[in-house]
Design a protein around this nucleic acid. Structure first.
Length: 425
RNA sequence: GGAGAGGUGGCAGAGUGGUUGAAUGCACCUGAUUCGAAAUCAGACGUACCUUCGCGGGUACCGGGGGUUCGAAUCCCUCCCUCUCCGCCA
């Protein structure tokens, strides 16, 4: 969530930022409500503190009077304390109410887009930051989409997944499973080479963790929940990995903190059905290698560029046609201040598929998580968090299969040979 | 699943109702000493919120929540977690 202090002190910047997210005047009123509620909260806090301070003073006096045997005087003070307690109890109730109200309001406000984020409402208004200028792969006449190729070569089986679990849970097998494992290994190796610490986190997280990265309270429906144990299946490695730093204070010399993790990702996605979600385009469980950075506010956007380059490098090694989009305000995620999406060209479906999303959250996540660093002067400041997929498997697999199909079989990019143990499918 | 023990500041570890936000040790930071370092000595050393131009002041926090009391780290209730032993098990 946004910092109160920032809303208070830089209201205009926040308001114009939210306009980029197409917030109407009506919605923008929430900012004033926040400021008003906060003001009331502060004055109530002051009143309560004063009442409690008075109570503390009286309690001490009573103690002293009792020690001196002045029972009567002590009794008089006790009645004073009693009325004071009634007062502070009601003030406390009021204060708690205001705090809850304020939190609810704050939770409802998305991150303020960075000044470089373009205006826009829909995905069509995203800016192409880097286009694919070379020709697309040319496929044979009878080129197949990946779900047909999967059948032909026995790579993954969605019907079998239905039998075992339900729709959207692919069963990979044979060379398909092997390719999956090879890609994971390849992505992790690339991340480790780039200085990320490899993490293998739990795939189930508790409520506090889900709240830390903002899945709760709003996006509860996106996650699978183990009701009995009150745990959530992670929708992305970002959740457990970023939360490693929750409530931590990092010495400034330790920044940036760079972590990478492979995990399966589970998403309920009460989304659409139809041709464009066929095959691996959208599934409930997929594999992903995530990269996460905790950075100093002065360097976070440089780090964002670094992460974009990292993903680019991988795309190049996989010899896949890709483009990079700078998301417009209207298409950005709730928590993000700036996001680049990577799309891979799926030659048989003849469309772009999103395979990576790299974002800087500034202090939006850190504020909720209380993730701070101690600067050179010993002052505590909120750190910036960033993350990105490097990369999401299912759609990359789709693209690799489709783009490299030949009458003789599917040719794998050279970089994967040592990971899969085979060059062709 | 059964039995027991326990959760206190970065760590270790005192503290069973009264000026205790918390002894002591270690770590960290600053200064002195030193050519420099070690050792030694002195000092500083939690977080959040409120308040103040600033110095400072106030409030809350000893796993979470609730209660008893004029007053709770200390008593009571409840939840969570950790550890040990047994059982089960990849």
């Amino acid at each position: 969530m946004l910092q109160l202090k920032v809303i208070r002190e830089e209201k205009q910047r926040i308001v114009s930022g939210l306009r980029k997210r197409n917030w109407a005047a009506q919605q923008l009123r929430v900012i004033d409500r926040i400021i008003d509620t906060d003001e009331l909260r502060r004055s109530t806090q002051k009143e309560l503190d004063d009442a409690l301070a008075e109570g503390n003073r009286l309690a001490k006096s009573i103690g002293q009077l009792m020690a001196q045997g002045k029972k009567d005087e002590a009794e008089t003070l006790k009645t004073q304390v009693a009325t004071l307690k009634v007062k502070s109890a009601s003030l406390e109730e009021k204060l708690n109410g205001l705090k809850t109200q304020l939190d609810d309001l704050l939770y409802s406000v998305p991150n303020c887009p960075h000044k470089s984020v373009p205006k826009g409402k829909t995905p069509e208004e995203n800016k192409v930051a880097k286009d694919w200028t070379k020709p697309f792969p040319t496929l044979p006449e009878n080129a197949l989409p990946h779900w047909e190729l999967a059948k032909q070569y026995n790579l993954f089986d969605l019907e079998l997944g239905v039998k075992l679990t339900g729709a959207g849970f692919p069963v990979y097998r044979g060379k398909g499973a092997r390719l999956q494992r090879g890609l994971i290994q390849f992505f992790l190796d690339e991340a480790v080479k780039a200085g990320y610490e490899e993490i293998l986190p739990p795939h189930l997280v508790n409520e506090d963790t889900a709240r830390g990265t903002g899945q709760l309270p709003d996006k509860e429906a996106q996650m699978y929940k183990c009701e009995l144990d009150n745990l959530y299946l992670i929708p992305t490695a970002e959740v457990p990995v970023t939360n490693i730093m929750r409530d931590e204070i990092v010495p400034v010399k330790d920044l940036p903190v760079k972590m990478t993790a492979y995990t399966p990702c589970f998403r309920r996605e009460a989304g659409s059905y139809g041709a464009h979600v066929r095959g691996l385009n959208r599934v409930h469980q997929f594999d992903k290698v995530e990269i996460v950075q905790i950075e100093h506010p002065d360097r976070s956007y440089k780090a964002l560029q670094g992460m974009v380059r990292h993903v680019e490098k991988i795309m190049n090694k996989l010899e896949l046609p890709y483009r990079i989009l700078l998301l417009c305000g209207g298409d950005m995620g709730f928590s993000s201040a700036k996001t680049y999406d990577f799309e891979v060209w799926s030659a048989a479906q003849k469309r772009w598929l999103e395979v990576s999303s790299v974002s800087c959250f500034e202090t939006f996540q850190a504020n909720r998580m209380k993730l701070r660093y101690r600067d050179e002067n010993g002052k505590l400041e909120l750190a910036h968090t960033l993350n990105g997929s490097a990369l999401a498997l299912a759609r990359i697999v789709a693209a690799i299969l489709e783009n490299n199909q030949t009458p003789e079989g599917i040719r794998l990019p050279k970089v994967l040979w040592k990971y899969t143990g085979f060059k062709m499918i």
